[in-house]
Simulated scan of single mutants.
Amino acid sequence: MHNQAELAYRRLHERLLDGHHSPGDRLTELGLCEELGMSRTPVREALRRLQSDGLVTSTGRGVVVSSLTAQDMRHAVQLHEALDALAAKLAAVAQREGRLSPVQLSALKEAAEHVEEQAATGDASGAWHANLDFHMMLARLSGNPMLEDALSRIWTMFAIVSRSNISRRSDLTPHDHHEIVSAIVDGDPVRAEAAASRHVQEAAEKYREDPS
């Protein structure tokens, strides 16, 4: 049953990340059981985990997809900046100490290039996923699984609240990604940290200009 609960959690998390549900949408156990083809116990456990993640909120009559206030978004962006900067710094340290492989560095470069390619096509959904892949790869290279988990939760919140905006504007700045990659490849944690922090700040500024 534990495996079923984990599967239910991952599938529901993916649906939230893909923008399948909007803030305020009501999620019922019965409805989710039918959609996922699973029994109520694992679905109930998955909803409890999503609630602890802050992604859904209990209403007494089931749960609804959480929404973020403007203040919540500011707090989330502040945390995102700190975590992204730390991830880039740790990845650069790992590179400097010889703990990153050529394959890992190549994958990070390719992820940055993929964001640029998707941005050029105007494919909002493709750009969103490419951007997410880059940032989560950066988190993995930090070598800190707790940091990776925290960033995953933040990105899911962003996806629920304003995925279309983030896809269209706020993170389509691939040159910033290349600056982060360059600093990591050079094993320069100070420059990598600064580049990652600057990238999030610029993205947040674009979001404030057009939060729709």
Results as ranks from 00 to 15, higher is better:
A150E: 08
V65E: 02
A192F: 00
D210V: 13
A195P: 03
R15Q: 15
E34K: 12
R15M: 14
T121V: 08
S39Y: 06
R49S: 10
H114A: 08
L32M: 11
T173E: 09
M136V: 11
L147P: 01
G60K: 06
Q78C: 14
S52F: 11
G126R: 01
A92S: 10
W128F: 15
E148Q: 15
R61E: 14
L86I: 07
A127L: 12
A87M: 04
N3C: 11
H199I: 00
H199W: 06
G126S: 11
N165L: 13
L138S: 03
A204K: 01
D171P: 09
E97Q: 13
A203N: 04
L55V: 05
E6N: 15
E116A: 15
F134E: 01
T41N: 15
L141K: 00
V93N: 06
L105K: 03
Q4L: 15
G98L: 06
A76R: 11
V181L: 01
T156S: 06
T41V: 15
R198W: 09
Q104E: 14
A130V: 01
D186K: 11
L86T: 13
R153T: 12
M146L: 14
K206I: 11
E193P: 07
H175W: 14
A196I: 01
D210Y: 13
A196S: 08
A192I: 02
I154C: 01
A192H: 05
K206A: 07
I160K: 05
R140D: 12
P174I: 02
Q4W: 10
F158G: 02
L132P: 00
R48C: 04
P174V: 02
M38N: 07
L17P: 01
Y207I: 01
L32R: 03
M146A: 13
W155T: 06
P174M: 03
D171E: 12
R191A: 10
G31M: 07
L79K: 09
R99V: 00
F134A: 04
A111S: 10
E81R: 15
L30Q: 15
A192K: 00
L151Y: 03
H135E: 14
A112V: 05
M73I: 14
R198N: 11
K206G: 12
R153W: 04
S52G: 08
L138N: 02
T28A: 09
S101A: 13
D25K: 08
F134L: 13
A85G: 04
E117N: 10
A119I: 10
A5R: 00
G62Y: 05
K206T: 08
L141I: 10
S67R: 08
S167L: 06
E97T: 10
I160D: 01
A119C: 14
T28D: 12
A204N: 02
I184A: 00
R10W: 05
D18Y: 12
Q118P: 04
